[in-house]
Design a protein around this nucleic acid. Structure first.
Lengths: 209, 209
DNA sequence: TGGTATATAATACAAATGTACTATAGTACA
DNA sequence: TGTACTATAGTACATTTGTATTATATACCA
């Protein structure tokens, strides 16, 4: 998918939201009035541009025939890459998601239920097996810099130079990181040695073979 | 959802297929010509009937504004209930899924990718923690009575009276059930003591709090 | 027997809608 | 400086399209 200018992105977002809300596509004039464009010809101009650029499909002469090519209908979240032990998760800068991410993942609504700033990463390696997360699993996360006690979070351990998924507890000046697997021991560390990268919302695993 | 007459079902199917194929809804006249109806008023008559009966939504005066109310778009799979240790998974009878199951679950396409006979169950308890499956996880399965060696399968252990998820190996007259967690020991048993209930396709976990 | 609901048809009309044509302004570039 | 491209606007027009009206036939039920 090629890049998109902010202007065109605004039009595309309007179309996406319109379809999402109402279940049918906007007319040229709906787009014009919805995007504060004073002339249908201008809206048509954008629609043709979006069509040329491969963001939408439509049929000539057929009213409301716009359909989205990007199949991220509903709850698509960006798949931002892979986390391996020893490298930080690439957290996106809050709302600077102008460019469409290369890969997008359809997530069931009941897993994310209205949460914003959601992204997904693929786990490389078995370093988080104690959180019941296996090699190849998809972890769905919400960007966050702080979390409540007891939340399962992705934590960057500065001294170990690795990311781990643990339940996070603040305890009288120390941080306790509790593995999900109760047979494993917690990690204790200083607040300045850890950095929260996000809350874990969901895990999805595709079983091979 | 109330019953539907065969005639109206034909119209509804046409609308469904039209939207599926083209990505936008048919006009009244599209329905007329597509269903061999010689007059737009007759097509409108059916559309109003379908709207009254709750099968479709539409807005007055808005062209091609029909949308389907039945939200089984795409990859909904039936959520057949809960498996607890000590009770068999309720496998559905092959293709007798005429009735819509009470609950349906939206599963990302990349997880099931064209596989048929797919259903999901919710896991109760920690008895399958050695397969990295936690209490509350959703397990997506494909109905099967036999599997290839090495496949992760739901297996009913007759002597223990419980279901377990393990990798399945047939080995010179015996069955080896290998936990996904390599720190745990395999279970060996006789072929007549096990019954395969399905292949595990995927696991989904919603993290609480 | 008559009323009611379903099914079907023809047609006319006004509103919704895609499209074409023309025009203007700003910016980048050669 | 002129050319090309993008962005924007106004307007006119023909087609698409939802809707209203009228009419006919059949089946069911009271």
């Amino acid at each position: 998918m090629m890049a998109i200018s902010p202007k065109r992105k605004r039009i595309l977002d309007f179309i996406t939201d319109f379809i999402q809300d109402r279940g049918y596509a906007p007319s040229i004039r709906d787009i014009a009035s919805g995007c504060s464009i004073s002339s249908p010809s201008v809206a048509q101009y954008y629609v043709e541009a979006l069509e040329r650029d491969g963001f939408i499909n439509r049929r000539p002469d057929i009213s409301r025939s716009i359909s989205l090519i990007d199949k991220t209908t509903g709850s698509g979240v960006p798949l931002l890459g892979t986390i391996a032990a020893g490298s930080p998760i690439p957290v996106p800068e809050s709302d600077t998601w102008v460019a469409v991410p290369e890969e997008s993942l359809e997530i069931p609504d009941y897993l994310i239920g209205g949460i914003n700033n959601v992204y997904a990463v693929r786990v490389k390696g078995k370093s988080m097996i104690d959180a019941l997360i296996d090699d190849g699993d998809i972890v769905v996360m919400q960007a966050a810099n702080s979390v409540e006690n007891g939340t399962m979070a992705a934590v960057w351990l500065k001294d170990r130079q690795e990311v781990t998924l643990k339940r996070f507890y603040r305890e009288s000046g120390k941080i306790r990181l509790q593995p999900a697997n109760t047979t494993m021991q917690p990690i204790y560390c200083q607040p300045e040695d850890v950095e929260i990268q996000g809350k874990v919302i969901a895990v999805m695993r595709k079983i091979q073979r």
